[in-house]
């Protein structure tokens, strides 16, 4: 559009060029500030419930935001993203229970396992389009879930990984201390979000958006679409796995539900709730979802029924997430003011 206008003699649209480095510094500063606020929170509100809530937000938030890298940025509707959440929880839990290595080693090793698994599954899945992709990822999720259920000697079957996960202290951090665990989860969340934000803003992130909008064109100008999709699939899996690790540390165990398809469904719903057009949408969605889920679970036994109706309301009634509304409202307001000036 802009090129067309320029040829006709009208001035080209003024696209403000943002230098990458100051922006990166700004993001890092914001992340640091958020982390400090979160870390100081226990001094003001010492309620254990609140801290628990934030830890769960960290686990779900990393999971949902990483899913948004696939759904919102690349247009890959993964319906099996929960498998990496489960893989992280089980991989980490088993590593700690069976080998007794220090926590950082287990953390890195779990991510390495996730990397390998995601590479193999991704290599098969990203060849497929849209609904095929959604269902093949779902099928892999069910494969991992059924493996967890049937491999009782290793995973404890449908009882989950019980007996607690040992949490030896390292570098002066003792994760069996609730406050340490809280600060650690916040740190992982903030670092994870910062990294994902950098991915989204990098040239690679814009390549992903292009693939989403027009994959054929992207491949015509020389982008290896398959490789780019596979890269983001694996990266997103790593962040989801980190979320799973936080969850495993939090509940001191791992349950088959972490790898069940509902986990992926919840991830998609969270993205829908918050909106997929903004980077922080899924994070907002996470908070909304957890509040909603906790309230509904407390009020009624039929929590699927209520949740389903809320999902329908969002999917058919509103057709967009909360952050999309906020952005639209903000843009409208700014436009309105611009016209008045």
């Amino acid at each position: 559009m802009t090129e067309l206008q320029a040829e006709q003699g009208t001035p080209a649209l003024d696209v403000s060029r943002v230098e990458a480095k100051p922006r990166r510094n700004r993001d890092a500063l914001i992340a640091l500030a958020v982390f400090v606020v979160l870390a100081l929170l226990p001094m003001v509100f010492s309620s254990k419930l609140l801290l628990d809530f934030v830890i769960r937000c960290a686990a779900y938030g990393l999971f949902a935001t990483s899913l948004n890298l696939l759904v919102g940025y690349t247009g890959l509707t993964s319906f099996g993203h929960g498998m990496f959440f489960g893989l992280g929880a089980y991989g980490f839990g088993l590593m700690m229970q069976k080998t007794g290595v220090p926590i950082p080693v287990a953390f890195v090793a779990t991510l390495a396992i996730t990397f390998g698994v995601a590479l193999v599954i991704g290599a098969i899945c990203v060849r497929l389009k849209e609904i095929y992709f959604a269902f093949v990822t779902l099928a892999f999720q069910m494969l991992i879930h059924s493996t967890i259920l049937s491999w009782v000697s290793l995973t404890g079957g449908d009882q989950g990984l019980r007996g607690g996960i040992p949490r030896p202290s390292f570098w002066g951090i003792d994760l069996s201390n609730h406050l340490h665990l809280y600060v650690m989860s916040c740190a992982l969340l903030v670092i994870g979000l910062l990294l994902m934000c950098q991915i989204a803003q990098s040239p690679f992130g814009y390549t992903l958006r292009m693939i989403r909008d027009n994959a054929t064109r992207a491949s015509f100008i020389g982008i290896d679409v398959w490789r780019a999709k596979l890269t983001i699939f694996v990266l997103a899996a790593l962040f989801a796995s980190t979320g799973g690790i936080i969850m495993a540390l939090f509940v001191s165990g791992a349950y088959p539900e972490f790898a069940y398809w509902t986990m992926s469904g919840e991830g998609i719903f969270i993205n829908m709730l918050g909106g997929v057009t903004t980077f922080l949408g899924p994070m907002v969605g996470t908070v909304l979802f957890l509040v909603l889920n906790d309230t509904v679970t407390r009020l009624t036994d039929y929590h699927g029924l209520v949740l389903g109706i809320v999902i329908l309301f969002f999917a058919i009634g509103l057709r967009k997430g909360l952050m999309d509304f906020v952005i639209e409202w903000y843009a409208q307001r700014r436009n309105g003011r611009g016209e008045r000036d």
């Binding site: 993205n271 699927g304 109706i309 999917a315």
Partner: peptide, 24 residues
């Protein structure tokens, strides 16, 4: 209502109904 919408919406509507039907 969601034929024109993207796959995500269709999946969500179905997901909602799986939850609702199971509870019903």
């Amino acid at each position: 209502r969601v034929y024109g919408a993207d796959v995500l919406m269709q999946l969500l509507v179905c997901y909602a109904f799986v939850l609702i039907f199971d509870d019903v």
